[in-house]
């Protein structure tokens, strides 16, 4: 069987298109690459959606933690503390348990599938981590900027939207890039702990361990998985670098440089 044929059969296997049965004997490198790559679709799905939705929640949480109102501040602090303070592994377990209970009561039955349930956990998780990053950045917004905005008559929402939020993003961006990388790595835990795999439609790690289990040789599939993730990470770094440039485009050249050498706060 040619490699192209394998790609046609298994390229979209993880979303249920193509050959129903996974290969069982005579595993080729091509099959390894195709199926693990096919599983990567889910890692990207989880990562991209969680990142986008989580971004907005994170902004809200950061503002909440900075709020004057004690109730809002405490709620934001607790949200961040619980999701940052416990392993994702355990969060997945509790979420699955909770969604099962909801299903038995007849509510939101779709949540027990990884595609919906695990996505919610990942969104909340990244919202907490990014929220903390943005909170730190928000506190670092230069007082002068805010005072200048006041002087120009900005207040309330426009002041936040036009002045504080962009500066917050700019300052928090290097750390946020790291969070994005971690988030994509964390997506490998979805099917590994907690959520079940339906119809053998899993993520990259699921197929990698499928091959490791069939060939009894961990030295081929896991390095392939690593290879894919290095490419994914480089892509993220590139995209975030472009955005970073855009966020900093108004700054004079030497100040831009200075920004880049800020120590990276990871997570």
């Amino acid at each position: 069987m040619s490699c192209w044929q394998t790609v046609q059969d298994y390229g979209l296997r993880s979303i249920g298109i193509g050959e129903r049965l996974l290969p069982k004997t005579d595993f080729t490198l091509c099959q390894h690459f195709t199926l693990i790559g096919s599983g990567l679709i889910w890692n990207i799905y989880f990562g991209v959606l969680a990142l986008i939705i989580g971004f907005f929640i994170a902004s809200a949480v950061a503002v909440g933690k900075n709020a004057q109102n004690r109730a809002i501040r405490k709620a934001s602090e607790w949200f961040i503390f619980v999701f940052r303070g416990s392993p994702l592994f355990i969060q997945f377990f509790f979420a699955y348990f909770l969604f099962l209970k909801l299903k038995q009561l007849g509510y939101a039955t779709f949540l027990t599938s990884a595609q919906a349930g695990a996505l919610i956990v990942l969104i909340l998780n990244t919202a907490a981590y990014s929220g903390e990053i943005f909170y730190g950045a928000l506190r670092a917004v230069p007082r002068g900027d805010v005072e200048a905005a006041d002087a120009y008559g900005f207040s309330g929402w426009p002041r936040f939207r036009r002045i504080m939020w962009p500066t917050m993003l700019r300052l928090g961006w290097p750390a946020y890039t790291n969070e994005a990388i971690f988030l994509f790595h964390a997506t490998t835990l979805v099917f590994f702990s907690g959520f079940p795999t339906w119809k053998q439609q899993g993520d990259a790690l699921y197929y990698a361990s499928y091959f490791a289990d069939k060939t009894f040789n961990p030295f081929v599939p896991y390095p392939i998985l690593a290879f894919y993730f290095i490419i994914l990470t480089l892509t993220i770094v590139w995209i975030f670098g472009r955005i970073n440039k855009r966020l900093n485009r108004h700054l004079p050249e030497e100040r831009r440089k200075k920004l880049r050498i800020r120590p990276n706060l990871i997570r």
Binding site: L21, K24, F192, S193, P196, T197, W198, K199, Q200
Partner: peptide, 15 residues
């Protein structure tokens, strides 16, 4: 797990 997949029934896998 391999057997159920082969039958074409809906397989749910847990670790």
């Amino acid at each position: 797990a391999a057997f159920i997949a082969e039958q074409g029934w809906t397989l749910v896998e847990f670790p």
